[in-house]
Write a protein that binds this DNA or RNA. Structure first.
Lengths: 249, 249
DNA sequence: AGTCTACTTTGATCTCGATCAAGGTTTGCC
DNA sequence: GGCAAACCTTGATCGAGATCAAAGTAGACT
């Protein structure tokens, strides 16, 4: 279970970034924030655009400001597995790394706050607080990756779909500053194909399980991209998910 | 692809630890090694013994000196997925964490070099080099976890078995300071059940795929726990594995 | 040595999700 | 509006791996 940053400490902003810049600025003192400000720039990518190609030089380090990006790896014959989902405030890149190990692809229009690599590495070297923050974030990511391993290895297709819906629901609630609970409505920010890659399924199975959950009354599909959940606990239950992200029924 | 510590920098020892204590001591200066020495102790666990229970208090922080331990998570109904394999020099625990998110189980007799939690946390706070080392290690682990996600989501049973054999071969070569190559022989340090949990398979499928690889001549089984590989490249090929860990054919 | 227990292998059958194949729907562009 | 391209759904069938069942094997203890 990822240990999340206490809400109060999340509110620091990285200069004028339009998000709560949890990623790297929490715990930073003002001087460091200023130095970050000096070396950062924004860039947006269109949906479907590949931001970084696996195996090529890692051109950036930074974090997602808005939109959804994906990390994925492929086998030589083309089979593809998504290995991470990057939501607003998530960090991209690794200090000191030269070659990107994954494709980074924009799943929607994505804005990234990026730092110049060399300068960011320098900044890290003399900012232990920043390094500590990166360590905490990386450990949270490791926990998420391991949670996902449980899903990939042992959950049924139906449970996988329910699990990913819970993730989307939580993301949406956080974005809207709304509460999780019965009757919630949220956007599905990935195509069926991207979900299939995330869940280790085929696109047809994803589609069929959406239909099955609809028929069972667990979800109401306004359209392919918008879901309503009459009974949130029911959805959690379908996901066989322990870690409820702090939701109390 | 995990960035590994350059070989030369790995040779520092944590005091009198009987392993190359890559885990946390590389990059440490002498004074820090001494402070680590002061707060460490050794403990051994029998094969099958649970070292830490998921959900309970995390009693230790440290690293594996010898043997093999496993990290695993379970679903409420008992389905189980291994989420990490701890080999000698791998690190256990997370600075600042109170509750263990996974079961840690000894797969063989395991010796652990453990540090008193409170003191280790203090040491980290004023040793940036140690923190940096932990960050690098955690990022390597994250890369491994993601590599494993590709295996769990997209590889066939046969590829999964070949992949895990490659891991065991590499571990054995490192332990014996021998070279990877044709004719190598190594130990399988997990039961069929543990491998099944690691690979997201059943024990019967694991057994059958061992038999199938034997029949194809990819491996020669001396007994259930000892494997000989006539053609290492063939095994790598069966694993559909890109990352060859630096092996040059 | 003999027995127990844990581990492994093999066989028969079933099932969930993949694959193959059409249609249907939405979006954007002319 | 009409068309094209991308995306989504549904149906029919297949097959890899799960499940159920039964032997075989190897340590460990007496």
């Amino acid at each position: 279970m990822p240990q999340t940053v206490p809400k109060l400490e999340v509110n620091l902003r990285c200069g004028d970034c339009p998000i709560r810049h949890r990623a790297i600025c929490a715990y930073c003192d003002e001087p460091e924030l200023e130095r970050l400000d000096d070396i950062k720039s924004y860039k947006t990518y269109k949906a479907g655009e590949t931001i970084v190609w696996a195996g090529e030089e890692m051109p950036l380090i930074g974090s997602v400001v808005s939109g959804v990006a994906t990390l994925s790896r492929s086998l030589p014959d083309g089979r593809r597995q998504m290995v991470g989902l990057l939501l607003p405030s998530d960090f991209i890149g690794r200090p000191g790394r030269k070659v990107a190990p994954y494709d980074v692809v924009a799943a929607s229009e994505v804005m990234i706050c990026q730092f110049r690599v060399a300068k960011f590495n320098l900044l890290i070297d003399d900012t232990p607080a920043l390094e500590r923050r990166l360590l905490d974030m990386t450990m949270d990511e490791l926990d998420s990756a391991r949670e996902w391993m449980l899903l990939l290895g042992r959950k049924t297709a139906r449970e996988k779909i329910a699990s990913v819906l819970v993730i989307f629901a939580r993301r949406d609630a956080e974005l809207q500053h709304s509460e999780l609970g019965d009757g919630l409505r949220f956007e599905v920010p990935l195509t069926r194909e991207a979900m299939a890659d995330y869940l280790g399924l085929t696109i047809e199975t994803v589609s069929r399980q959406f239909s099955a959950l609809k028929k069972s009354g667990v979800i109401i599909m306004e359209d392919a991209r918008h879901i309503r959940v009459p009974d949130y606990v029911r959805l959690l239950d379908e996901a066989s998910d322990d870690s409820d992200g702090g939701f109390i029924a």
